[in-house]
């Protein structure tokens, strides 16, 4: 059965094409493209991706405007039904603003936009998105953000850790994130938000392919399901 994925584009998204290429190449089926103003998602989706970028120019707060766009109502509803949602970088900011994931992404502690490849530690290798990795494995994925400083109150952080919902952690301090958290899962495990860009590391020409397994394991898990 063909894998049906959709990449949502907001005004100011700039990693939507990279995300669509990653999903299309790795799944073998062209990813569908959805515009933020659409009220409905394509039918029978297996996978939704919210890409990086600067939706609405980061007006008000990063991701704040996109989180209230028409298509996000449909994305929240689909996530509630269990459709997997991968939210990368600005996408992560959008899903926290939309309430799909706890916490918030604040300005990097050092104030600077950071654009480099960082080491990540895989904390949870049991999720749909991370099953292709070993727990504790160190991988290298590019980041490119100014607002990646993950914040949540202590009780929320304890709960995330206790429930195995920290998917990735920076292996070294990068942006001031609480407990060096780089990616978190929702309670049901079908929504992953992460600041690093796995779609920018899917082949050797990218300088590394550690992101490829995230897509491979998710696609395999869904096609076999």
């Amino acid at each position: 059965m063909a894998f049906r994925s959709a990449v949502i584009t907001f005004p100011g998204s700039n990693c939507d094409r990279d995300m669509a290429v990653a999903l299309s190449e790795i799944s073998g089926t062209e990813a569908l493209r959805v515009w933020h103003g659409d009220a409905e998602l394509p039918e029978r989706l297996d996978f939704i991706a919210l890409p990086g970028g600067f939706s609405y120019g980061d007006y008000l707060r990063s991701g704040a405007m996109a989180a209230r766009s028409p298509i996000m109502r449909a994305v929240v509803e689909a996530a509630g039904r269990g459709v997997p949602v991968l939210a990368v970088c600005n996408g992560f900011q959008v899903v926290t603003e939309a309430g799909l994931l706890p916490g918030a992404l604040m300005r990097n502690a050092g104030q600077h936009f950071i654009c480099r490849t960082v080491p990540l530690k895989v904390e949870n290798s049991q999720s749909l998105f991370t099953a292709g990795y070993e727990a504790g494995e160190e991988i290298h994925i590019p980041i490119a953000h100014a607002d990646g400083n993950y914040f949540a109150d202590e009780a929320t952080l304890d709960r995330l850790e206790g429930e195995g919902r920290v998917a990735f952690r920076y292996a070294e301090p990068v942006n001031g994130s609480a407990r060096d958290i780089a990616g978190v899962l929702n309670e049901a495990g079908n929504v992953l938000g992460m600041m690093p860009h796995p779609e920018r590391a899917i082949e050797a020409a990218h300088g590394g392919s550690d992101g490829r397994r995230l897509f491979e394991s998710a696609i395999r898990g869904l096609v076999e399901a």
Partner: peptide, 9 residues
């Protein structure tokens, strides 16, 4: 609550 402030922070 719904937009102007992010009640998390």
């Amino acid at each position: 609550r719904q937009l102007l402030a992010n009640m998390v922070i």
